[in-house]
Nucleic acid binder design. Structure first.
Length: 285
DNA sequence: ATCCTATCCTGGCTGC
DNA sequence: TGCAGCCAGGATAGGA
């Protein structure tokens, strides 16, 4: 599902078509996509504003708006599970599962397409407060091995649910947590404050390496949902070590990859590369 | 503080 | 072939 690498890829690919353009009109085909605002309110807030910058924070794609050169709020796109962004010809009929369309000056439009309707496009006067409540960006300076060591020691939680918690660390989801934990040879049920400094350093490095490599490959596509705005699938799924590989051989040691449930999420591990912590009862699939 | 469950959704899949 | 039921999962709310 779209996690940091997929969201980063989408932001990069829509950026050249959006930056500098003005929003002309809004149509909400599924009103809940824009949440607390009605279509009319949303339109009033964004119409005529210029998209000054497109960037990413955690799993949000952020469109900074300006009017007369001054900040005029932000549009936050969250793809959740099946959301997609496409630049489309402005006048076409709504396509299947299109939930929102922002018509742009110049004739084209930004379309938000989402089969499962979980995705959201919000207008906020400022997202600063929302972003302050999120953990650091894993690929930025603030996320150091020392920070991670101290942060893990300040909590007493299983690694997987902690790494999925966006207020702890931003941008990871189910897939990249499983991949990073396998690469760091850490079991998802290991308790955060009990890791050695060496193990934490491994985890830190593997989180960064996994995400960077996935961005290089434009994310992962293993079902028909995630595509870049150009309609291309990512290719990182070919690098998966454990995710979705239950029943197959671990690429490092040959043992069979198993799937079980942690934090209500499908969790994939190699039992020989990722040794279970003592005294932990492993929940059943 | 942490964990667990339900909710939101659709479509693909399984099993009868 | 038809159809009911289950599953996937990011975020959040509410209860234990």
């Amino acid at each position: 599902m779209p996690e940091l690498p997929e969201v980063e890829t989408v932001a990069r690919l829509v950026r050249p078509d959006l930056e500098g353009r003005r929003v002309r009109a809004v149509r909400a085909f599924w009103p809940r996509t824009i949440g607390e605002h009605s279509e009319g309110e949303f339109a009033a807030l964004v119409s005529g504003a210029r998209i000054a910058r497109v960037w990413r924070r955690a799993k949000y794609i952020v469109l900074d708006l300006e009017r007369r050169g001054r900040p005029a709020g932000q549009i936050l796109v969250h793809l959740r599970m099946t959301g997609r962004l496409h630049i489309t010809p402005g006048r076409s009929q709504p396509r299947d599962h299109e939930r929102l369309r922002l018509s742009l000056e110049g004739g084209r439009a930004l379309s938000f397409i989402d089969v499962r309707k979980f995705g959201r496009v919000r207008f906020m006067h400022s997202a600063e407060g929302l972003f302050r409540a999120l953990g650091p960006e894993p690929l930025e300076e603030g996320f150091s091995a020392l920070w991670l060591l101290q942060a893990l020691r300040g909590r007493r939680r299983a690694l997987k649910p902690l790494l999925l918690d966006q207020s702890f660390l931003a941008g990871l989801g189910n897939i990249y947590v499983d991949e990073a934990l396998h690469r760091a040879r850490l079991h998802p049920l290991r308790i955060s404050h009990k890791l050695s400094a060496q193990a934490v350093t491994r985890l830190w490095a593997e989180i960064r390496a996994t995400l960077s490599e996935a961005i290089e490959r434009e994310g992962s596509s293993f079902d028909r949902f995630y595509r870049t705005p150009e309609g291309q699938p990512g290719s990182y799924q070919h690098q998966f070590q454990v995710y979705g590989r239950q029943g197959q051989a671990c690429k490092s040691c040959g043992s069979t990859v198993v799937k079980f449930t942690v934090a209500q999420r499908g969790t994939h591990i190699c039992r020989s590369c990722q040794r279970a912590p003592r005294r932990v009862i492993i929940s059943r699939p």
